[in-house]
Design a protein around this nucleic acid. Sequence first.
RNA 1: CGGGGUGUGGCCCAGUUGGCUAGGGCACCUGGUUUGGGACCAGGGGGUCGUGGGUUCGAGUCCCACCACCCCGACCA
Length: 499
Amino acid sequence: MVTQHTRAQHAQSITSRAQDYAQWYLDIIAAADLAEHGDVKGTMIIKPYGYAIWERMQHILDDKIKETGHQNAYFPMFIPKSFLSREATHVEGFAKECAVVTHHRLMNNPNGEGVVVDPESKLEEELVVRPTSETVIHAAFARWIKSWRDLPLLINQWANVVRWEMRTRLFLRTSEFLWQEGHTAHATEADAEEEARKMLDMYAWFAREVLAMEVIPGEKSESERFAGALRTYTIEAMMQDGKALQSGTSHNLGQNFAKAFEVKFLDQDNQQQYCWMTSWGVSTRLMGALIMSHSDDKGLVLPPEIAPYQVVVLPLWKKEEEKAAVMEQVSALREQLQHVGVRVHIDARDYETFGTKVYGWEKKGVPVRIEIGPRDLAQNQVMMARRDTGEKKSVAIDQVASEISTVLEAMQKALFASSQQRLQERTVTVDSYETFKTQIETGGFFLALWCGSAECETRVKEETKATIRCIPFEKQQQNGKCMICNAATSEQVIFARAY
RNA sequence: CGGGGUGUGGCCCAGUUGGCUAGGGCACCUGGUUUGGGACCAGGGGGUCGUGGGUUCGAGUCCCACCACCCCGACCA
């Protein structure tokens, strides 16, 4: 075991220290300086560089959400306990993981030691810290919606939510997380269904085009369905170890919540109707997906679309007079790149060695690194290195802007292609449960026929820890037998172990 | 809650059958030399050894209790 690290040793430490994939994942987060554990167990402090990545996600998603006709709003984080219980399945699904506010005041400890909760300040009704906002938002919808003219009502909220999970992991499952939750109300079942599917499509687009991450869109089985929903749709991504990560969900809530919260409208025939509703969301879990999809042994690898800095420039010099000339060239380059919309950062720290800076930015996953020194100046060129392939070459100074655009585009495509290839190669069709049981050990997605019974689903989970990730929208239609019980069926599903 | 493990500067650890002023590496600060793939020299700052008891002339070390955290199981975006 490595107990001491010289700088040189640290170069290999991301993987050499890693006992397993989970440790490797945490090492990447630490090395890239993305986040750390919060003071309360299960919480997470997102550090500036990590948050900058989340802000890129927010920015791009927010634009897309607005483009599709939704408006942002904000609702309270405290939910009266009674709200939660109005929809029976919903409260059942979340009851075990709710943080509850019971008092509103502290007082000096009578024994003189610090402060204690003032028993006099007990709340009439306890408040639940939102694990999700359907209930508060639907209570508001009930007041806002009167007529068919008010529909569809398309609302989105950026917020934090709290779910008191037993076991947590940075980004993937923290007690508190940041997300976007869309909530909509529609006049017809068809409209709600269309909305739920449309927003799932948006997530799939985002995962593929922005995060360069291949996903399988599909429907959740009943046991994995959102508490209170009619149908739950999901995009499932595959991490580098072959395990699945649910990366976004969209729910058709039917009229369940509308009935519980009296969300009604008068239709064109002056008849009272319950609304058809949806909700959908993605969270900071996407950060985990991003990290696990593309990172390598040198650290994080960021697709250019999401990278806070797409290019980092390292100026080099020995003498002061060289510095002036180099920095002049660097500023000119920065203007040139900013002009074409490239996010660029100049690292002119002179108290770090060149190597330290190079390794630092590689760990942070910056797509392109440019080096400019006296040698380059003399030849009117720069050195350009690409993060994913490691390819390094010199480029004429007047070609840099166009070359960078080309490289960023190529890297975005290459990362997606490799994610796509991984998912394709590691998705196999199985019909024998015995084969499945041995192959699941090494990860991957397994396309299999399933009879639809919870018994078979549970048995697989108990025996192999694998779950039905989704019933994919795209599948080869085939009739056959359930992999587990041999009952006749044509339902094709994806089994995998998941995070 | 069940099983396993760990607690010594910010991080990783050493500290022998109890012994004298608690150490090292990384990181940090100052000065100098360096800088095209993780620099070097010199000096320096930073510690209630998880907490509370006990044994002892003497406890980081032995004993007891407690606490915290990590890993594995039941929950999940």
